[in-house]
Write a protein that binds this DNA or RNA. Structure first.
Lengths: 177, 177
DNA sequence: TTGACAAGGCTAACGCTGTTAGCTACTCTC
DNA sequence: GAGAGTAGCTAACAGCGTTAGCCTTGTCAA
């Protein structure tokens, strides 16, 4: 058995991620992924059950990436920061990661979540900074919804082109703090 | 020229909407739409430019439907209701419509919005109740993001199965009022 | 009455997608 | 050396959106 990091599966995920990030979802085809590895599409099925299965691996990558960004954001603050400061930092990290990886963010947050297929605990770990900062569960969920809504609407260009999104973010964070 | 309401285009939209709502996005194929009308798929292109074009008509339907629900919600309140009461009513109407038409809601809110293809003014009319109720633009956008986030996360089953979403809605509305 | 023309069907086909079946070659173990 | 497992391959399938090109029907003008 070879190392996990140079595993064929890891190479597949890397190729898929690169394709998705640079070409968008339409560029993420089994044939394109295979081509990056100089093999043919059917060979991918020796390592991955299906395209959905492959995408789950990408979703896990996204969770790890955005989770790390959010953990770093709250850890970067001093001891016992104000809730408002923590939420602001968290929001900035959340938004910045999503804008840097729009297709990955969309893939990870759009459509039903294949919970049982994800590594156990990953979802909770990703959400942990927000849960820690926010008071009640209800407030945490409302804040998450706000952050996701702002982010996905921005990524999809649903706000008017001249909208001041920094201000909208600030208004939401202020209200929810 | 025949009546607009019995137009072939209207029949196509009706068939497409029915397919989408009952079978989900995978059921919405050109061949399936055509079959409902007892014609073959290529004939659809005499009335509609493309599948995307057909979907834009569905998106407009969704805007009209959800917009009407929201207008009705705020109009149903007395004169000069409290902002909190208006937002609560608006949120309920927004959420209820989306849950009643999940696939249509997703189609209308997911991905880039083909603004120029939509009937002029429709977007503004749909958003009008929220804009009227909310104070600042920033606050309106934050509230919209919250509502959309709560809704799409619920539709996609992203909240834990035991999450009290009524409470999360209430917390968000309270904070944003 | 006839001829032109547009509208709206049709079949055949194309290129793309994910995916399966079945074959083959290499490598490791006993 | 024999056998098994791993990982590649080609060929093919069904389904997708879409195009090309043909044919019938109805309308309206000359």
């Amino acid at each position: 058995m070879s190392q996990a990091t140079t595993d064929r599966v890891s190479q597949i995920v890397e190729a898929a991620r690169d394709l998705l990030e640079t070409q968008g979802p339409d560029g993420l085809t089994m044939r394109a992924v295979a081509a990056r590895l100089n093999i043919r599409a059917p060979s991918l099925y020796k390592h991955v059950e299906s395209k959905d299965d492959m995408e789950v691996l990408l979703i896990a990558e996204a969770f790890r990436g955005q989770g790390a960004a959010m953990h770093a954001a709250v850890d970067g603050l001093g001891r016992r920061p104000a809730r408002r400061a923590s939420l602001t930092a968290l929001g900035r990290a959340y938004r910045a990661w999503a804008i840097a990886h729009p297709h990955l963010y969309r893939l990870a947050t759009e459509g039903p979540l294949p919970r049982e297929a994800l590594p156990e605990g990953l979802e909770a770990w990703t959400a942990e900074p927000l849960v820690r900062v926010t008071g009640s569960e209800a407030r945490a969920r409302a804040t998450w919804a706000f952050a996701h809504g702002m982010t996905i609407l921005e990524l999809d260009g649903r706000f008017p082109p001249d909208a001041d999104l920094d201000q909208a973010w600030a208004a939401g964070i202020a209200a929810l703090s």
